[in-house]
Computed example of a mutant assay.
Amino acid sequence: MWSAPFLMGVAVPLLLVAATAAWPWIERAFRGREDVSHVNQRLLDVPARAVALWGAGTFVAVATVAAANDVIARILGAPIEVVVWVLRVLVVLLPLLAAVAAGLAARRRRRRLHAHHHA
Results as ranks from 00 to 15, higher is better:
Met1Cys: 09
Trp2Tyr: 00
Trp2Cys: 02
Trp2Val: 01
Ala4Cys: 04
Ala4Gly: 00
Ala4Glu: 07
Pro5Cys: 15
Phe6Cys: 06
Leu7Ile: 08
Leu7Phe: 07
Leu7Thr: 08
Met8Ala: 05
Val10Gln: 13
Ala11Pro: 01
Ala11Ser: 08
Ala11Val: 13
Val12Phe: 10
Val12Gln: 10
Val12Gly: 08
Pro13Asp: 05
Pro13Tyr: 04
Leu14Asn: 02
Ala18Glu: 06
Ala18Gln: 08
Thr20Gly: 09
Ala21Trp: 15
Ala21Lys: 00
Ala22Ser: 10
Pro24Leu: 08
Pro24Met: 08
Pro24Ser: 02
Trp25Asp: 15
Ile26Val: 15
Ile26Phe: 15
Ile26Thr: 12
Glu27Ile: 12
Arg28Gly: 04
Ala29Asn: 02
Phe30Asp: 06
Phe30Ala: 10
Phe30Ser: 10
Arg33Tyr: 01
Arg33Gln: 03
Asp35Cys: 05
Ser37Val: 15
His38Ala: 15
Val39Gly: 11
Val39Leu: 12
Val39Asn: 04
Asn40Arg: 12
Asn40Ile: 12
Asn40Gln: 12
Gln41Trp: 06
Leu43Arg: 01
Leu44Pro: 00
Asp45Tyr: 02
Asp45Met: 03
Pro47Ala: 04
Pro47His: 03
Pro47Glu: 05
Pro47Gly: 04
Ala48Phe: 07
Ala48Glu: 11
Ala48His: 09
Arg49Gln: 06
Ala52Pro: 01
Trp54Ile: 10
Ala56Asn: 11
Gly57Ile: 09
Gly57Thr: 11
Gly57Tyr: 09
Thr58Met: 05
Thr58Leu: 02
Ala61Lys: 00
Ala61Gly: 05
Ala61Ser: 04
Thr64Ser: 13
Thr64Gly: 15
Thr64Met: 12
Thr64Arg: 05
Val65Gln: 02
Val65Phe: 08
Ala68Val: 01
Ala68Met: 01
Asp70Gly: 15
Val71Tyr: 07
Ile72Met: 00
Ile72Lys: 02
Ile72Asn: 00
Arg74Phe: 09
Ile75Glu: 10
Ile75Val: 10
Ile75Thr: 07
Ile75Met: 07
Ala78Tyr: 10
Ile80His: 15
Ile80Arg: 14
Ile80Gly: 08
Glu81Trp: 00
Glu81Phe: 01
Val83Tyr: 04
Val84Gln: 09
Trp85Phe: 11
Trp85Leu: 13
Val86Trp: 11
Arg88Cys: 13
Arg88Leu: 13
Arg88Gln: 12
Val89Met: 15
Val89Trp: 08
Val89Leu: 13
Leu90Val: 05
Val92Cys: 14
Val92Leu: 14
Leu94Glu: 02
Leu96Val: 15
Leu96Glu: 09
Ala98Tyr: 03
Ala98Pro: 07
Val100Gly: 10
Ala101Val: 10
Ala102Gln: 03
Ala102Ile: 02
Gly103Thr: 13
Leu104Lys: 11
Leu104Ile: 07
Ala106Gln: 05
Ala106Glu: 03
Arg107Cys: 02
Arg108Leu: 12
Arg108Tyr: 03
Arg109Glu: 09
Arg110Gln: 14
Arg111Ser: 03
Arg112Met: 11
Arg112Glu: 11
Arg112Ala: 14
Arg112Thr: 09
His114Arg: 15
Ala115Gly: 03
His116Cys: 07
His117Trp: 13
His117Ala: 14
His118Asn: 13
